[in-house]
Amino acid sequence: MTPADRTDTVHLRAFTEGDLPFLDRLCTDPDALGEFEWPGFGDPRARRKRWEADGYISADSTAVAIARADNTVVGIATWKPRGFPSGVTYEIGVGVVPEHRSQGVGTAAQRLLVDYLLDHTTANRIEALTNGGNLAEQKALERLGFRQEGVMRGRSFQHGNYVDVLVYGLLRAEYRPATA
């Protein structure tokens, strides 16, 4: 196992009230999610309202904290069901703040997320979308066994330009052949 694949460096957990400043940062700091994920300034109150409504955990979409062993939040991991019937396909995403990137945190969090979905849902397929220029994310997905399945040309608007988005997929039988 390479250092980038070590899941003992981070864990996933539900957001708590004490994490609200971290969630605020995602709306107010252009560098927090990185050049490929920054959607523009947002209202931090919207994130707080979502946390108050459901703690970021619902049947429609879920977001949890990526935390270090000392419980410091270093990122966000998300999943949402896609397609019909619900519960067969999930789209995942991971964002790590700059000071914790390039340390294997994102790959470890994605592995934990894939394991969680395969252990606790009926997921047969897990998808991830990534900006065509995000080579680090593409490598992380490929390390976990995801395959690039397609390109959605000009799907995203970023920094004044339309950019391609790559579709990656992973099937249960590819990740866990013995349990398929």
Rank of each mutant, 00 (worst) to 15 (best):
T62D: 05
I76E: 15
D119I: 06
G106T: 05
T122V: 08
N124Y: 15
P85M: 07
I57N: 11
A63W: 10
V88Y: 09
V74Q: 04
T122E: 14
A69V: 11
S58K: 06
G83N: 06
D60S: 13
T121C: 08
L129W: 13
G106L: 01
V94W: 01
G75W: 00
V105K: 01
V94S: 06
K80N: 13
G83W: 02
L118K: 00
T130M: 07
N124S: 09
T130I: 07
G93H: 01
V97A: 15
R101A: 12
P85D: 11
I57H: 13
V96R: 04
L117F: 06
F84W: 14
S86K: 12
A69S: 14
N131L: 08
D70W: 09
A77N: 04
L129M: 14
A65S: 07
T72M: 10
Q110S: 15
G83T: 05
A69L: 14
H100G: 07
V96T: 09
R68Q: 13
E137T: 14
R68K: 10
I76Q: 15
Y90G: 00
N71I: 00
Y90H: 06
A108E: 06
A69Y: 00
N71T: 13
A69D: 13
R111E: 04
D119H: 03
T122Q: 13
L113Q: 04
T107D: 05
N124W: 12
I126T: 06
A69P: 13
P85Y: 05
G133Q: 09
V88M: 09
A77I: 05
A123L: 05
A65Q: 10
L129V: 14
P85L: 10
G106C: 08
V88Q: 09
E137A: 14
H120Q: 15
T72G: 10
V97W: 02
E137R: 03
G95I: 14
K80D: 11
E137H: 11
Y116R: 06
T72W: 03
A123D: 06
E127R: 01
S61L: 04
E91D: 11
K80F: 01
G133T: 01
V64W: 00
P85F: 11
T130P: 01
V114K: 02
V88I: 13
G75C: 02
D70T: 02
S58W: 01
T89M: 09
G132Y: 09
N71P: 00
A128T: 03
A69N: 14
N124E: 12
V64N: 08
Q110A: 13
I126M: 05
G104I: 12
T78R: 11
D119N: 08
V88K: 06
P81F: 03
T121Y: 00
G93Y: 00
D70N: 10
Y116D: 10
D60N: 12
V94H: 02
H100L: 05
G132C: 01
G104T: 04
I57L: 14
A65H: 05
D119A: 12
D60T: 11
H120Y: 10
V105A: 14
A123W: 01
G133V: 02
D70K: 08
K80V: 03
Y90P: 01
